[in-house]
Design a protein around this nucleic acid. Sequence first.
DNA 1: CTGAAAGCGCTTACAG
DNA 2: CTGAAAGCGCTTACAG
Lengths: 341, 341
Amino acid sequence: MIVTIKDVAKKANVAPSTVSRVIANSPRISEKTKKRVREVMEELGYYPNFQARSLAAKSTQSIGVIMPNSAYHAFQNPFFPEVLRGISKNAHANKYGIYLSTGSTEEEIYAEVTSMVQGRRVDGVILLYSRINDKTMKFLQETNFPFTVVGRPDQNEERITFVDNDNIFITKQVTKYLIELGHRHIAFVGGSLDFVVTIDRLNGYKLALNEAGIPFNKDYMVHEEFIKDNGKEALKSLMSLDSPPTALVTQDDLIAYEMISHLGDMNIKVPEDISIVSFNNLMLSEHSKPPLTSVDICIDQLGFEATSCLIEKIEKPDTLPKRITIPTKFIERKSCERRQS
Amino acid sequence: MIVTIKDVAKKANVAPSTVSRVIANSPRISEKTKKRVREVMEELGYYPNFQARSLAAKSTQSIGVIMPNSAYHAFQNPFFPEVLRGISKNAHANKYGIYLSTGSTEEEIYAEVTSMVQGRRVDGVILLYSRINDKTMKFLQETNFPFTVVGRPDQNEERITFVDNDNIFITKQVTKYLIELGHRHIAFVGGSLDFVVTIDRLNGYKLALNEAGIPFNKDYMVHEEFIKDNGKEALKSLMSLDSPPTALVTQDDLIAYEMISHLGDMNIKVPEDISIVSFNNLMLSEHSKPPLTSVDICIDQLGFEATSCLIEKIEKPDTLPKRITIPTKFIERKSCERRQS
DNA sequence: CTGAAAGCGCTTACAG
DNA sequence: CTGAAAGCGCTTACAG
C-alpha cells in the first residue's frame, strides 16, 4: 500500500541502503544508479517517511517555535505573524519544518517545551520572547539543547545566543527626540514588566530623561496590567495629574492606536496637545490618524536571524554563543510636534 | 545517555511492552505495576520518543496548518494569528501538535503539502484558505487524506468538510444595511477574485443590489491587485467617476483602514461623505477613526471548529463530510451614515 | 561504487 | 495481567 524504500530497491535491483544514499544524494553512488533509482521512485510515487528518517538519523529537521502566552494581545498583534514569516522563510530555505507551540499558560508552555525537547520532536527551539526568570529558558539552558531567543535573556546573557534590537539605545533616542521637541513631561506606556523588552525600553527612557536633567516621575509609568483592564481609565488618571504629560513613549503601535482613540474621546488632540512615538512600525501606522511616528524594528529580520543562528547551532554544536543586533529605523510621521512654551 | 523504554523496563523489572502499555495507560496493566513503572520513569527522567512512537503506531499526533501565500497582507493580517489561536486551543486540548506550512508560492505550498502528507509527517491538514482551482486541495482530496478547510471549497463542496461563515448572506445583509440608509452608489472593495471568500462576498453584494433594483456597476468593483500596487490611485479613480460611490463595502478591516486614510488625504470624510462597512472586526476597529462598522466573523471559532472536524476525521475515518457555518455578529459603529438626498 | 546487517525507540498482535 | 517477538521505514558503520 505504502511505498517504502524496499519496494524501490527491489524494482531498481539495488539494496535498500543504496536507495537511501540516493535520497541523501551521496557522492558515493554513481550517476547511472542514481538516475535509475530516481526513475523508479518517480514511477512508484515514493516519498521518504519522516518519522523513520528521524528515528534512524536522529534528526527531525524541524524547529520548535514558542509563542508567549500573554504578551499584550499577542494573538492580534502582527508582531507574531511577521516574525514567523522571517523564521519560515529561512527555515524553508534550509529544509527545516516549523513546529508551533502555543501553550496558554506558562505551565503549559513549559510542559510543551520539555516534551518537545525530551521527546526529540524538534532539533532546536526559538523562543519568541524573553521573560524574567523564565523556567522554560532555564530548562533549555540546563539541558544544553540548541535554542535561540528573539529578545534579550535576563540571565546568562553571555552564554545564550539571541537576536534583539538595541532597545535601550533606541528608546533613549526616541525619548531624546521628544525632549528636543521641547517636551519635559513625557510618560511611558509599556507592556508588562515581566518582559525584558519592557525593562530595556523603560531604561532607555529613563536614561534620556536623566541626561536631560528631567526627574523620573513614577506617575508617568503606565503598564500593561492597567491598560488591559481598562485602558481608558488608566489614561484618564494619567491625563488628570497636576501636570499631565505632553508626550507619550508607547511600547507598541497597537497600544498607541488605542491611546490615540481614547485621547480623542477625551478631546485631547494628537499631536497638537500631546505627542506620541511608538515602536514596531506596523503596516497600519502609515494610515492611522495621525500617521504614527514609530521605530521600525525589522520584525521579520529578527525571526530570520534567530533561525540562522539556531540552524548553525544545530548543525555545528560547538558554535559559540552570540548576540545579534538588528538595526532599526526611526520613521518620522505626524504624531509629534514641537512643544509650545 | 538517552533514557529509553528498555532502561525503564529493566529497572522496573518488567518487559518493555509493559512500559509501553503504562505510557498508553492501558487498562490491562495493574495499578500496582503502573505505579512502580511511573516511579521509575520519573526517577530516570524518561520521555517517550515521538518519532519512534509515530513510526510504530503510525500516527504522528500532529496536524499540518497551511497558510495561504498571497492573501492580502497575509502576514500582517491578524486573521491568521487569530485563527491559529482557535486551532491551537483545540489541538492542544486533544494532544495534537501543530506543524506549520508557509510556502511563499503556490508551488512551494503544494510541494510542502505533498511531502508532509506522503511522508506522513502529519495525521491531517487544515487549509486556511480556499482558492479557485487549487492544486493542493485537489491533491488532498484525491489521496483521501484527512483535511478540513477554513472557507468554502470551490469544487466538490458536498464531499469536503469545511468551516465557513455564510459569506453570501452576511454581505447581502450588510449591503442592504447601506441601501436602507439611502445609499444607491455602493462600491465593493475586495480581495483577490482567486479566493472563494471574495467571490462569495461579491455575490452577496450583487444580490442585495439586485433585490433593491440597483444595477450592478463594474466600475464600482475594486480588487486586491489594484490596491496592492497603489491603493491611493485605485481609490482616486473610483472617486472621480461621474457618480462616485457614497458607500463602500470592504472585504477586510485592514483594507478599510487604508481606504479611510486615503480618503482623508483626499478630503473626503467618513462617514459624512462616504459610508464604510467592513469585515473581521479586528480589535483595532473599535479604536479607528471613525470606529468601524464591521462584521465579526468569529475568527478563532473558525479555527477551533475546523480543528474539531479534522480530529474527528482522523480518529474516525468514516466520518461523513460536513459543512459548519459559524455565526457572525454585525457590529454597528460610526462609519456609516444616512445618505442625505 | 554497492550490499548485508544491525539498530533507531517505540507498538501491538499473539500467547499464556 | 504480563512477556517475547516481530515490525514500523529508514540510516549508517563495516566490509568488500
